[in-house]
Design a protein around this nucleic acid. Structure first.
Lengths: 138, 138
DNA sequence: TTTTAGTCCATCTTTTTTATAGGTTTTATG
DNA sequence: CATAAAACCTATAAAAAAGATGGACTAAAA
């Protein structure tokens, strides 16, 4: 399961995408609209900002806004940033690979093979679907 | 990612499946072969036994053995038993569903829709692949 | 210069995960 | 029947991760 952090991030990004025309959006507004702890959300938005996904403006009239169009933000990027690996096992992770300590040879490990397929099937969706694809349908 | 518990369970089950002809297998043998803490493994095998996946025999000449053929043990079953939900979000889980608290209507939530697809793609593999499919290839 | 709002960092609590300890029960076997 | 082997069971501890909070600082607008 995705952590609360990542779940909150998705909902916050959805809100920001659905309100691009309004300029910078207050943390407090997002928190209220999406029922998220304001302080926890603050940390999340900051991480998204440091990763270049969001921009911010301080002071009166400030807030957060998307740095790219929703279509340019793949879901996999958000998950990897806040949750880490998408694969089910370290030994099949593309971005966080670690050798398996319980099997002798990954090349002939059937678990490795099946889990690679799961990873591929998952990534095919998460890499190709973007923030644009998870906005509320009209 | 799958927990260590589930990872160890898979490796232990693989070992048991690859040695069915030898009768009951000692916990200590599995632990040694697969580099798993013997005491931790003990708990895991017990859970698998209580779930009807493994059988055991006490005393001298005892040990653990599969209660079904490897083909009859889907990977999804093991994961759900030891790790819980396979879906990425509670609101798209078939076996551990919980309503989403951050969105107003799941029916029009785009996140819900995409994550359902991820779940389906994952389950298609994990429900149909069994212990037999993850044995070491010759 | 006051107010608003993001920034930064530290800590804290709770939960989950991982691991260990130690006694109990069952069973084969000599 | 005595002994040793091996699973069973329960509790607990240690470590890591997740979730949440507090407060001082900085930038910008009015």
């Amino acid at each position: 399961m995705l952590s609360k952090k990542t779940q909150y991030a998705f909902h916050a990004l959805i809100y920001l995408a659905e309100n691009v025309d309004k300029g910078p959006i207050l943390i407090s507004e997002i928190a209220a609209e999406k029922s998220i702890s304001i302080k926890f959300l603050e940390n999340i938005l900051l991480e998204l900002k440091n990763a270049g996904i969001l921009g911010s403006k301080k002071g009166k009239g400030g807030g957060y806004y998307l740095m790219r169009t929703p279509k340019e933000i793949p879901l996999a990027r958000i998950i990897r940033l806040l949750d880490g690996p998408i694969a089910l096992l370290p030994c099949v992770s593309l971005n966080y690979y670690e050798r398996c300590e319980n099997c002798k040879d990954e090349a002939v490990c059937g678990l490795h093979e099946v889990m690679s397929k799961v990873r591929d099937a998952t990534l095919k969706l998460l890499e190709n679907k973007s923030l644009k694809d998870i906005l509320t349908r009209d």
